[in-house]
Design a binder for these strands. Sequence first.
DNA 1: GGCAATTAGATTGCACACAAAGTATTTATT
DNA 2: AATAAATACTTTGTGTGCAATCTAATTGCC
Lengths: 162, 162
Amino acid sequence: MPKSAPAFDAPLPLADNLCFAVYSTALAFNAVYKPILDRLHLTYPQYLVMLVLWQQDDVPVKDIGRLLHLDSGTLTPLLKRLEAIGYLARRRHAADERQLRITLTDAGRALADQARSIPQGIGAACGLGWDELGKLRDQLTQLREQLDRAAEASRPAPAAVR
Amino acid sequence: MPKSAPAFDAPLPLADNLCFAVYSTALAFNAVYKPILDRLHLTYPQYLVMLVLWQQDDVPVKDIGRLLHLDSGTLTPLLKRLEAIGYLARRRHAADERQLRITLTDAGRALADQARSIPQGIGAACGLGWDELGKLRDQLTQLREQLDRAAEASRPAPAAVR
DNA sequence: GGCAATTAGATTGCACACAAAGTATTTATT
DNA sequence: AATAAATACTTTGTGTGCAATCTAATTGCC
């Protein structure tokens, strides 16, 4: 039997099924993170931004967006909320006033200590060994890169200037 | 070296990294589905509901929620939108007026034809073989079940009645 | 220098996703 | 039968996510 088998022998077609598995696993992950992150007054996307900042402080919004695959329409209000609760500061870059540089406050830096135990807890909730965890992450990362290419390819060409 | 290795030798701890991989893959999948589903005037969660209905018509909201792992707060407005564009009907069940039964309209049934080619397109966008696709889906489904158990366990006990 | 194109964010509008609280109906208990 | 508890859905409020559009600043080009 060839590799690309009939698409309708499963209750839901397999490609759809994989997407649904990813989709619902993402929601399930969020449900596990939520009670933990509630204690830090963070949502999961906010936590991702904090992870970026704990790695490197004083970052333009654009870099955060590139790292997390999120656009400014998502990040602008999210960053304003993180500023409102005092974890970071938003300041225009002197050398390029278009850029908004994000820097941690003392409270934001201090939060890293409280967050340090989170990955272990999540790892335990996954019920997977170290190597399985890594393998799955690598497969998904590859898949995401492939999907990004596919989405790019199907996007309308950038209006070639004559 | 034991299985549960140090948690801080990666740029981001591994468990967080797996969650991020799932999270961003879900968003990437959505970006691939979007232009395809736009032609059917569906969002991805709406498409999931239609998949359920194409399998079994005349379903209570609760069953849809159980199948898709979505709660009524999400489904109520979503189903109203699908009703507004004429793909389904919402009717109280005669035998139990609490239940809202969802049934396909002719337009909703007809849509299945247009949707038939979607899984192949998505499968191609994944760039994975049939067996890899299935293996990944199974691993993720297992992971989601494990995460559901972990979330359940960490939820406050349902207030034992004396 | 002057003007077009590009770039970085902000804003608006729409659709999830879920917690919490509310309403109506049904079932269980006494 | 009356009332309590459970069930099924609705409503409200908060926080994403993204498309589309907008503004302001910078860069390119002549």
